[in-house]
Write a protein that binds this DNA or RNA. Sequence first.
RNA 1: GGGCGCGUAGCUCAGCGGGAGAGCACCUCGUUGACAUCGAGGGGGUCACAGGUUCGAUCCCUGUCGCGCCCA
Length: 952
Amino acid sequence: MIEKTYQPAEIEGRIAQAWEAEGAFKAGRPDRRDAAPYAIVIPPPNVTGSLHMGHALNNTLQDILCRFERMRGRDVLWQPGTDHAGIATQMVVERQLMERKEPGRRDMGREKFLERVWQWKAESGGIIINQLKRLGASCDWSRERFTMDEGLSRAVIKVFVQLHREGLIYKAKRLVNWDPKLLTAISDLEVQQVEVKGNLWHLRYPLEGVSFDPNDPSTFIVVATTRPETMLGDTAVAVNPEDERYTHLVGRHVILPLVGRRIPIVADDYSDPEKGSGAVKITPAHDFNDFEVGRRHSLPQISVLDIEAKLSLADNSAYLHGLPEGAREFAEELEGMERFAARKLIVARLEEFGFLEKIEPNTHMVPHGDRSGVVIEPFLTDQWYVDAATLAQPAIAAVRNGDTTFVPKNWEKTYFEWMENIQPWCISRQLWWGHQIPAWYGPDGKVFVAETEEEAVGNALGYYVEQEVLTPEQAHDMAEDPAKREGFITRDEDVLDTWFSSALWPFSTLGWPDDDTDVKRYYPTNVLVTGFDIIFFWVARMMMMGLHFMEDVPFPTVYIHALVRDEKGAKMSKSKGNVIDPLHLIDEYGADALRFTLTAMAAQGRDIKLATSRVEGYRNFATKLWNACRFAEMNQCALPDGFDPTAAKQTLNRWIAHETVRAVREVTEAIEAYRFNDAAGAAYRFVWNVYCDWYLELAKPVLTGEDGEAKAETRAMVAWARDEILKLLHPFMPFITEELWAVTAKRDGLLTLEPWSRKAELSAEVFASPVLTDPMVPPVILQPEHEPEFSDPAAEAEIGWVVDLVTAIRSVRAEMNITPATLTPLVLAGASPETRERAARWSDVIKRLARLGEISFADAAPQGAVQLLVRGEVAALPLKGVIDLAAEKARLDKELGKAEADIKRVDAKLSNEKFVANAPEEIVEEEKEKREAAVARKEKILEALERLSNAG
RNA sequence: GGGCGCGUAGCUCAGCGGGAGAGCACCUCGUUGACAUCGAGGGGGUCACAGGUUCGAUCCCUGUCGCGCCCA
């Protein structure tokens, strides 16, 4: 029995359990051994994360694809899991320690701290996994993976060592984005540019060899800077080579104020003559652009900050080198000063000595750490890098030659843009939580990279024996006893960027490198579904690593979906307070309604501005479905064994079979093309506007009428179409459909494993699958050529007539303010034999739906009747005395006007020789037909008007 | 500054060479046993603006204005 009201909260948990108990989402189910695989790896959410709208959309779409393909018989693997989120997780645990007033990370030491992180992970990590389950994600949860898993860690180490061996990973001293609060390098993508109202300080740098006079511009050059404190590290002033104001100064030197360093004036395109004074100070160790300028002109790199972004000058030989007497005192005065305090002091000091020309307010972008929120410091350090430019080449080629395609296509441009300008990827992080880099150092700093400590130590000891740093005996002792080699061989303390492990996700989760059974079956996966902001995080890196290690793209298709914004179009963010929590929406409207809303709005190439009213609307849709199923149940609609919808005799039943087949086709083709919104729209219209509004309404007289063949057939058809609907909607609304599937009939199994009504056509993709060429994998059982789909235009025409007639009568009744209680007679004027038959067959229904009394026939409409045109014939409502003749005349006049306008427009076209000559034939034909129809309509309206005036 | 995208009904959005659609909101009517989380009907749009291409432009091209995002 179906419950009276639809309460999503009541059914969703129970249904989730049923899927779990059945192992419905397990990949490699025995019954699907021979099926073609279909694999998606989830873009691994952050283990500290919780479900936001972006996740909800992302996973809803993946789930639709997975459920759809599962129902189409494929062996679906939707691989779930989370990434370890180095910084975020470390911060969470550190905050927890602080809250609990426990010793901090550094106090407890690395090993202890890592224990605590694992403990945290066990207790509260992965909340998001449960939230994904609430959304209905049909992942194979038994295969959940974590980037810090043993297996995945082995993959990471293996990849690191191999890339290092191939020269694609190296250590270098370069500028990195340094987070002075978290004390680690972070990636470009973790840096957010924030608009800040700052200043542009114009500084006077005195020219060498002349005596500085603040009032004489020929004795100095003005440089403009947003970061005056970095002047301490300046090693040049750059001017544009084209800038005539300065050409005479190129090659000369300035004496850095306060510091006394002698630095050159160089010509470089980087300096923009339009900006500031046209001359810029160059600080290669503290600015990315300056770093490049410095390289071009072989300038020294002088770092003046420490890891906490405090001034570090006193023992800084690079800074002190070549400075005059007294420089040390200044250095000591500033030593240890925080960067912004130092800015103040330096500006004051510059002003005091006349070096400050002016301060100009200036709004500019300042990099901030997205985790720490502090200003990021470009900082010169030793880090490990991946030679991304080299790895990117095959990844670029794969998209160029179509091995991987983006949907929608325009994102390929973004991908190329980024890949072609890719910088060396800094992969080391000064954190504890993550994959520790498998590199060991000897006492002279020589690095030994190996998969195991044993191997690295062996190599190192061998080397030092050879170098006669150690005796073989010493080496032997050290090899035996880790305590003995302590202080001699040390492991790199840093860990790898989380994205390094994520890049391996499409194959590391399948068991590589330990076991390649699943790699063979499921790699490459079928599609990656993600947001555009993640193209660089995941897509690019997965492509690079997949191609390098698997020698094949990780996925042939990348579907890029929209960003979910608030209803005004602003990006949702905690700081703006405009976040809509998907879990709240699930609580209020149900997961199905949320999913359907996101799907219906997921048009390609456009962001989703989410209004909760839309969610409410689709919850109502779910309720409608629920009640339609109740209606079927109350009328004892059940599907007899062996029922063949195409053999139905009743026109109405043939009609709904026709419409159902069409809807299934529309939905199927839309999902296949990743047109999710079209798929949802087609399903919605069919269920509500066709099945509920018309089929069930038209079926009511039969269902409540006498028992007999017609009734039996209709009951069966109502049930058949309902089952088709449940299948059709299941990928979008899995919970309610599964529940209704269970309660509407005795079933052999879960809906989620039920076959989709329209089978997959043999696509090129399936053929191209390497699985098919693998002798170890049994061939896919191909669906036989399916028969031409069922279609019945005659039924469509008949029911179409009924629908049009009822609609027209309802409309005019409403316009005439005829109360529903008033039953009006209907006269079909000059009806064809076909219309007479139809009217006889449908009289009950028409009477009920259009609030009619008797239906009769006549050669012409009675006088003083409202005359309607339905499919070219006149339907008259004799309402003498009831209708307002003037109003009816006005109505007909309006109709006449419309018809005449149509004729005029078409005539204009048809009389245009160029149109007839150039337009496609079928368009011209169409126009001619339109004209004929409009002319016929006009005649009928004129007749009607005449009859009306006679009545008056 | 470079790139991408968007301006369609009051709102949120589809559509995209042959006289524009949905959901919500609004107005009118409705307790006919699936459903008021509903039903019936209705109003409402020079498809941002200006040029161009075309027999024909909301749709293609160019420009302008407005808005958003990404990168520098």
